[in-house]
């Protein structure tokens, strides 16, 4: 009986995956592991004492950071508020500027191909540059302060927002728009009465999403001199005042969580 079933399983059932796939997957697996090990080796090169030492260090560091000096909270509330205001202004301006850009980079609205490809490429390039790098450049241009931070956030969120919204525009139902055009509506009328009602809920939802991203980005912009709470954090770290730095980090953490909660609730209510 057992012999029979053995021969059955050996003889007739083909393997689930062909041998070629198996070899491919094995090779890919080892390549990935190889790159990982090499990356680990490379990144630990300049480290003194290796990983074991670092783990021991971690305990010492946690002692340094704790307990956070919460008595400075009233003093850092002001820069925190400025940070939030930066994000609000940047999101608002980006939301306004994104409308023409999104229309230009939506295939079904911009039927003139070269213009569509131009805006698409521009937005793609814009999105590859991290927010802090933009902030570094704008701080160089405008000097230290809130203004370069706001500009950096606007440019950064424009890239994301225009892409998300142009995709929404591309996925709308074109039939009502065609009907309007057929019955004599001009391009602006078609956009306002055919496109806007279909896109608006998504638009608001994406703006809120980008606002969350901007809050997260704006708290760290100060590290490169672009204003807000990050500037204070950078100073405190510069003084090696870790309990104060930890208090700032805790405040950032709480504010981000609260804003995310509110924005999530608003988004749920919208869709």
């Amino acid at each position: 009986m057992t012999k029979q079933s053995n021969s059955l399983s050996q003889g007739t059932t083909p393997p689930i995956f062909p041998v070629k796939t198996k070899i491919q997957i094995t090779v890919i697996f080892f390549v990935v592991i190889g790159i990982y090990l090499f990356s680990m080796f490379w990144t630990q090169q300049q480290m003194v004492g290796g990983f074991g030492n670092a783990l021991g260090n971690m305990a010492v560091v946690i002692e340094k950071f704790f307990p956070p000096n919460l008595s400075i909270l009233p003093a850092i509330w002001d820069p925190m508020a400025q940070t939030i205001q930066m994000a609000i202004i940047a999101t608002t301006v980006a939301a306004i500027l994104t409308v023409p850009l999104a229309l230009l980079s939506a295939q079904n609205i911009t039927t003139f191909k070269p213009l569509y490809y131009l805006t698409r490429t521009l937005l793609n390039i814009l999105r590859t540059i991290p927010d802090l790098v933009l902030a570094v450049v704008f701080v160089g241009l405008f000097g230290i302060g809130l203004f370069p931070g706001i500009i950096a956030l606007i440019i950064f969120s424009l890239g994301i927002l225009a892409k998300l919204i142009s995709e929404t525009i591309e996925s709308v139902d074109m039939n009502p728009l065609e009907a309007m055009r057929a019955s004599g509506g001009n391009i602006l009328q078609v956009i306002f009465h055919g496109l806007v009602p279909q896109v608006l809920p998504q638009f608001v939802s994406f703006v809120l999403y980008v606002f969350e991203i901007n809050i997260r980005a704006s708290v760290v912009l100060g590290l490169v001199g672009a204003g807000g709470i990050g500037l204070v954090l950078d100073q405190q770290l510069g003084f090696y005042n870790y309990p104060n730095a930890m208090a700032i980090i805790v405040l950032i953490f709480v504010v981000v969580l609260i804003i995310e909660y509110i924005s999530n609730k608003l988004r749920e209510a919208l869709i």
Binding site: T43, Q44, Q45, Q46, M47, A54, V61, F65, L233, L237
Partner: peptide, 13 residues
Amino acid sequence: AILFVVAVGPNAF
């Protein structure tokens, strides 16, 4: 990254 730089030193790890 700030926290880990303090913990393991200013390096890629």
